[in-house]
Deep mutational scan, measured.
Amino acid sequence: TFYNFIMGFQNDNTPFGILAEHVSEDKAFPRLEERHQVIRAYVMSNYTDHQLIETTNRAISLYMANL
């Protein structure tokens, strides 16, 4: 899942690491979701930090390219 992918960046001092920290603390994050459209919609609806949203979009693109 995307959640498992992004958790691989925990403790990294990178934008993906920052995203992983936010996702791990977000109890409502769709952890079992595999459809990138649902993940993107969730982030757009629940996150207000523009940098975090952009990082999510980049992470989703990388995740999709590696499926």
Rank of each mutant, 00 (worst) to 15 (best):
T1K: 05
T1E: 03
N4F: 08
I6V: 08
I6L: 14
M7V: 06
M7S: 04
G8D: 08
F9H: 05
F9N: 01
F9S: 01
F9Y: 10
F9V: 03
F9D: 00
Q10T: 10
N11Q: 08
N11P: 04
D12A: 11
N13I: 07
N13Q: 11
N13G: 14
T14L: 03
P15I: 08
P15R: 07
F16N: 01
G17V: 04
I18D: 09
A20D: 02
E21Q: 15
S24E: 08
S24Y: 13
S24T: 08
E25L: 14
E25N: 15
E25F: 11
D26R: 05
D26N: 02
F29A: 01
F29C: 03
P30L: 04
R31F: 07
E34P: 10
R35G: 08
H36R: 04
H36A: 14
Q37C: 11
Q37A: 11
V38P: 04
V38W: 08
V38Y: 09
I39D: 00
R40A: 11
R40G: 05
R40F: 12
R40T: 10
R40K: 13
R40M: 14
Y42N: 01
Y42S: 00
Y42L: 01
M44N: 10
S45T: 12
N46P: 02
Y47S: 02
Y47Q: 01
Y47M: 04
T48V: 09
D49K: 06
D49N: 09
D49P: 04
D49I: 05
Q51C: 09
Q51L: 14
L52D: 04
L52F: 05
E54H: 09
E54S: 08
T55Q: 06
T55G: 02
T55M: 07
T55I: 13
T56S: 10
T56M: 15
T56P: 02
N57D: 13
N57K: 10
R58H: 11
A59G: 03
A59H: 04
A59D: 01
I60Y: 06
S61H: 12
S61P: 05
S61E: 15
S61Q: 15
Y63T: 01
Y63I: 06
Y63L: 06
M64N: 08
M64F: 08
M64G: 05
A65D: 11
N66A: 14
N66H: 14
L67S: 12
